[in-house]
Amino acid sequence: MEIEFTLNGVRKRVQVEPNELLLNVLREKLYMTGTKYGCGIGECGACTVLLDGEPVLSCLVLAADVDGREVTTIEGLARGEELDEVQKAFVEEGAVQCGFCTPGFIITAKSLLMENPNPSEEEVREYIKGNLCRCTGYMNIVKAILRAAGVIPQTP
């Protein structure tokens, strides 16, 4: 079957099988490999993308269900060479180690800041509960999100 949806602002038409997942279509058919496959069962958050502006797990969304909708992946955040505020903050705070969980975290953080531009540390931690990181111990990720929110000042 053919589906049509908007990916990072660009209309896409793709042939998909009924049992194909959004994650597989993004990675294998559209070569958007920023979104990662982690657990496949909704535990880790590595595959988080925005669907109609809200964070969902692309490993548990049928591609067919995305027909007519809008998807934003990590590739859709930067404007050319200019990184998004959240991406910059992750770089500045050293919130990235192996990097596998990072796209999911940044998408989730982006969604948090759109909903709540001034989150407390507790609100940040609550919101990112569905994203697992096995390297950083979360400290710098939390700092980065607070920095992107302007709670922690930018480095001059």
Partner: peptide, 8 residues
């Protein structure tokens, strides 16, 4: 679940 799970 998580925010993602509750969105779905």
């Amino acid at each position: 679940g998580s925010v993602q799970i509750r969105n779905m």
